[in-house]
Design a protein around this nucleic acid. Sequence first.
DNA 1: TACACGTGGGG
DNA 2: TCCCCAAGTGT
Length: 364
Amino acid sequence: MNEKVTELLHLFDEKQFQYDLISWYKNEQRNLPWRENQDPYRIWVSEIMLQQTRVDTVIPYFERFISKFPTIEALANAEESDVLKAWEGLGYYSRARNLQSAVREVADTYNSVVPNNPKEIAKLKGVGPYTAGAILSIAYNIPEPAVDGNVMRVLSRILGIWEDIAKPSSRKTFEEVTRHIISEEDPSSFNQGMMELGAIICTPKSPSCLLCPVQNHCRAFKEGSQEELPIKSKKKAPRPVPIAVVVLKDLRGKYLIRKRPDKGLLASLWEFPNVELTEGGLKEDQLRKHIKEEYDCDVAIENEIAAFDHVFSHLKWQLTVYIGTIQGTVKSEENVRLVNKDELEEFAFPVAHQKIVATIEVNE
DNA sequence: TACACGTGGGG
DNA sequence: TCCCCAAGTGT
């Protein structure tokens, strides 16, 4: 144990802490669909969905996803487009692609059994240190740390850790501390109890210290610093990106859509033709030029039908949406389609483009 | 290390 | 309206 951790755990009664935390968790835990059993596959899917995503948001996605892909084999054999469609609206779409890739790996290499050791499970795509620990502890009851934002917040307050939890380097401190205080008898309830406590009691703002089952163990509560902890530096503001979009119909009334590249932002999702605007020049002209280059066709741009912002973690699309007509034919490619309005719902769109689909409905 | 990578809810 | 998030991972 290094010096910093020794200092932090000085006079800390981890046995009593485990008992108080786990007793509370067993009595107060929420009924969540991924807690119905310990199927490693279901735990895995839930942990991926829960990354940076609220429980209430995940629940319906999890139910639908498990209905559609109930087993490792079912997900391994599914079409990627169907997986992305099931993920539509959940965000961070690489999670879905990495999950299916890793599930195929488990099907091929591990006879469809999720590995139960840190070495092998950590190799799987999309399974980082948190998710590895979560699956090992929850599905297999193995005492591995599962340090997420909740755990860092709770431990910051309990032990009085004044490190910036936004810095990647500080997660090591929390992992090491957790290795020393985790319950060897019930690591599943310990890890889930820490996260449940963070979600329900030890919240980021206005924590409910008077209801806290481990209040007696909490240094922050003792010194009244629970509102100051954890230390968390601020993120940069999203960068604005002006974009012109056009909803194009051909002579038969079919809409032109294209599949985004399989890497980067919104990978492999479908969208309406659009171009990032540069300074100077009419938006319509830039759009027509872009369409000519990308789709090799001429278009008539008729009206502006919407303008709105869509904010991502790191950037802000400033969208101007036009409606227009295709003159002639479109270059035929695998990632370009002409589809009826009814067929649009078969494709997975990012939310910004779902909003545009909704605009079409209103305009017809 | 720092940034890319989404979305909808809540104060 | 704005800002902060919410059970992180990949590069």
